[in-house]
Amino acid sequence: MIQIENLEFAYGAAGFGLRIPQLSIAAGSTVAITGPSGSGKTTMLSLLSGIFRPASGRILVNGRDLGALGESERRRFRIRTVGFIFQNFELIDYLDVRENMLLPFLINRSLKLNAAVRRSAETLADSVGLSEKLNRPVTQLSRGEQQRVALCRALLPGPRLILADEPTAGLDAANAERVMEQLGEHAARIGATVVCVTHAISLLDRFNRVLEISTFLEPT
């Protein structure tokens, strides 16, 4: 599903850079990427989502070369293919739980917000234990609940690729277990590939594959 060949990227002329000679991730697999802070894990997720464009080399996702796409095409690629889960959840404070889950549909005209989507949102919320809190402001939720809202937001459009950037950072052990369990279950149900950056050693056995970043990435 994901194929990286001779990828090179740098922040500006003299900024941090990285090179990935070769990396393959199978469709439907769950991959954990570990490594020290500042080693390029988040940058790699940005490259995989098409936010950053490689300076050279190829990133093929489902056969599409992201480096060859323009900005608007990469944006469309993100809408249709990628679900994001962020370390700090990055929920919108002024929206309630339901509206945060539906945010990708509110901001992207290509995603149609209809009754079926609304029902899916309720089912999803029910599956992660948030059905009673759909109309609450997200600021009134616990951190664990907020991350579950972020998980639902990432899953609702039915992405083929889920990119998670330290999704359990800041959560207690029980909430971290719960979030990872739900992520695994739902990703498997929709057949999505999961690439998750994490420092949580205890959660690594939940992934099909664990990659230490230094084994495939070279800082430049």
Binding site: R75, R78, V82, I92, D93, I107
Partner: peptide
């Protein structure tokens, strides 16, 4: 800024 960046990452266009 953070909120707008999140929207951008989720595929929101600058025009939106």
């Amino acid at each position: 800024k953070q909120e707008l960046e999140t929207m951008f990452k989720l595929g929101c266009s600058r025009w939106t």
